[in-house]
Amino acid sequence: MLSIKNLTVNVNDKQILKGINLEIKAGEIHAIMGPNGSGKSTLAHILSGKAGYDVTGGAVTYQGKDLLDMAPEIRAREGVFLAFQYPVEIPGVSNIYLLKAALNSILKYHGQPEVDAMDFLTLVKEKVRLLEMDEKFLYRAVNEGFSGGEKKRNEILQMAILEPKLCILDETDSGLDIDALKIVAQGVNSLRSPDRSFVMVTHYQRLLDYIKPDFVHVLANGQIVKSGGAELALELEEKGYSWLDEQAAA
């Protein structure tokens, strides 16, 4: 599904990603952990096409195509979805408008007819229920005045409706209380399928109790310094990240 080869990225002439290698197959769940400022969000942004980063080397292939060559909206239509660490507020655009515009542009890209108004509403309401949100949220401006937790839930709602192929979750669990975390995890788990993959950036093992990863990677100082199975997250929780530096130094 996704293949990242020796990716190096600069921001304002400062190297942030220093040779990332990562292979993600369809149906897999990968967790990326690592200290603050190590480059996790930078990687997520690069994958979704945010401007302001210089890719100085390496390649990213998504479903056999050069991902870095695509405009952000094309990536989204091809099935890449980023749940933002800090979702933006968009006053004046309602949630329901955004959902409809997004879904229809994806359908159009794939040569399918626009969604029928009634079917759309049925779909949206079903997902709203899945995430235990109030229907009123649909008619409010995107993220405007939402609490931190509500914003994160709203990201997952969009994901559930747009049904992407590669779901990137950047700290979706940060700032969620345990009940909200369970609901979000339930939303994510309901989307798991053999042809859908997840990349979850997180600082907390707790998320991984509810969504079990196939692989855990540690990103430190712009590089993946260690990869392992779900058990690696437990080890990190226990020991922190410093032992990895010692290991690397040794």
């Binding site: 096409g49 955004l98 515009a101 994806i106």
Partner: peptide, 12 residues
Amino acid sequence: SVFYLQSRSIDE
């Protein structure tokens, strides 16, 4: 905000 909408499939 422009990027946010683009990341949701909407052209620039």
